[in-house]
Amino acid sequence: MKINKESLDLLKEIMALEFSMIDLNLYLDTHPRDEKPLMIFEQYSCRLKDMKERYENEYGPLTPDRAGNRQWRWIEEPWPWQIDYEMGGK
């Protein structure tokens, strides 16, 4: 499914950053008083918020709560399983 290069690059950056946060989240679940990863988590969290806002303003909503700005954009394709993340190969 076609997706433009700029939106794909930003989406993949968001995916990578949010994945790092999931990994930190699991670590913090069993080490809740470890301060350094907590600090990194907070930094990533700010960056992710900015990146998602940029993505959603330019290319479309990631979650339904951000989908209703004058038109219903939630149903727009592509869905995650349709995207050609490597644009036809590496």
């Binding site: 994945f19 990631l62 339904p64 709560d65 993340y85």
Partner: peptide, 15 residues
Amino acid sequence: WIYEKKLQYPAWVES
């Protein structure tokens, strides 16, 4: 749970 329109990893296939 809330659905987010992205995968956790950019799954791809070559062939």
